[in-house]
Write a protein that binds this DNA or RNA. Sequence first.
DNA 1: CTCTCGCCTGTTTTT
DNA 2: CAGGCGAGAG
Length: 629
Amino acid sequence: MAYLIEQGIAPANILALTFTNKAAREMKERFISLIKDDHDPKSMKVLFAGTFHSFCVRILREFIEKLDYNKNFTIYDESDQIALLKQVIGKLAGANSDIDANKIKFLIGLAKNKGHEAPTAANGELAPQIFQRYQEGLKLRNAVDFDDLLLLAVRLMKEHPDVLDALRQRYRYLLVDEYQDTNQTQFEIVRLLASESKNICVVGDDDQSIYSWRGAESTHILEFGNFFPNAKTVKLEQNYRCTPNILKAANYVIKNNSKRHLKQLWADGADGDKIRLVASAGEQEEAAWVVAEILNRRRIDNLSWESFAILYRANHLSRTFELELRKFRIPYRVIGGLGFYERREVKDVVAYLQVIMNPSDDISLLRIINQPARGIGKVTLEELIRGAREAKHSIWEEVQLQRQRSGGRSQAGLEKFSDLIHRYHVRFQQETTWSQIMKDLLEEIGFFEDIRRTSKDNNEASSRCENVQEFVSSLAEFEQKREGTLQDFVDNLRLEQKEDKDEEKDGFGVTLMTLHAAKGLEFRHVFLVGVEEGILPHDRSKLEGNVEEERRLFYVGITRAMKGLVLSYCDKRRRYGQEEPRHPSSFLTELPQDVLEHISANSTLTEVKPEVAFDRFSALKAKLSASGR
DNA sequence: CTCTCGCCTGTTTTT
DNA sequence: CAGGCGAGAG
């Protein structure tokens, strides 16, 4: 990107795509720091650097009317999808059918990611019908799901050559990061945009392909030359991040994969510290050891909290570490997991905004029509849904009909709700102080009182109220920056994990995140925790015969570390409130012994003694006898 | 119509 | 353990 700018290419003609918002942010930052001496960073705002999804939203908001959607379409997230699917399944198979909405959602996603119009019948007898009804349901609600964003963008470009042409004119230089993770649809987008100009540059590493479960195919990068025959390949084999010891460990692990593009990674400099393999009795001990080590290391080397990251395979593993960090009042941030906007109270507030902007959005409407309670109960709702279905219009329109008809206890409620949405719809259109309107709305419906009333305790109540307050202040902030419409605000919310607000200014503490989220990032000290058989590799991957992807995940984790790497596992772990025995990951046996140091978390930090010798059979034996007792 | 209680089920990874 | 959901009392 910096090179293109140096060559005099207009920033508006450059399009840079990534897979996560964090990676996009990181890319922008590094780019700005490269060019800031010669160019005004502000003039670079027209350069689009973002995720595939946010790029697609942008072009769809501009052109989607050509596909017979309304411009103010709503983006459905996972829970909205599930809600819609449950409706569809209920309609199709009866209320007490045992069809799992989650499974269907997964199948639909898989099909869409591969660019299919419908899942094949083999996926389950009802799946094709459900898929069809689901898609109709989205359309009816003027909504699109995450995968549709990509699919519709492709359709737009294919069916409307004038649009494609305009986009090609606009985005003349295309760059894609983490290209090994492109799925069929994303590949199609790239191909459509770049096939004429051939001004395309992609970066990727097949050893870091960790999204095949989302339809990513690393063949896209391996066969790049087939689509762009004059492509020039540049191998980046020197690693500037890790110490030779860490890189050696990574190389040893990854070479156990059979399906890969061979390369010789090397790193300069001193070997560095040994990699520490820490065994703990349980997750409490593991967390205690890790946090004590962070405290220690920070003091000794005079480091910032930001130098440390705790990485894990699955989100729920963050909990014990959060508790322990809190105990010592160490600042930290958790990436992912239950996102900010996924919290009940925040979702409710967002749903109000959605309905106000797009009343056809039944899913959001049903969420808030009786929230806080205004006398619209199950019976009324069923009537509304039935009426809407029969008349083939939205529930909102059905509300407009039924509020006229008198009788029934819910009448007043319907009247009130309908009037409320109308009034605020007008206000949001006419006034520009969105945050004030939002405050008025929350006040009028008694949202905070309702939260206090329905919360289990004071703690929960105040934290939920705070979340809503924070939402309102982020709205205020957005409004002050004048960076976009209210619709843009909601889009960002949907597509972006809520990041810590003061992340930019004074650091954000220790980072906790999944291995997937860590890709593309680096930390001075990495603690890769829960390295146990069944967690990494995950049990499910073994069933699905995809252990090699788990190994790549392990590889990604190892190579996030610049100087220090700790791999840690427990002998037992609580799961569903029940304690279970655990065993070290088989991946650990693939590590070169000479770069390892074995540590038992039972020994205190001041007197760290290397364990006798790591012998997994004796370790296993010890565990078996322990569990036997 | 509202609310509480207790049973149930699930936990991979992300936009 | 925790959040979702249905049943049943008020």
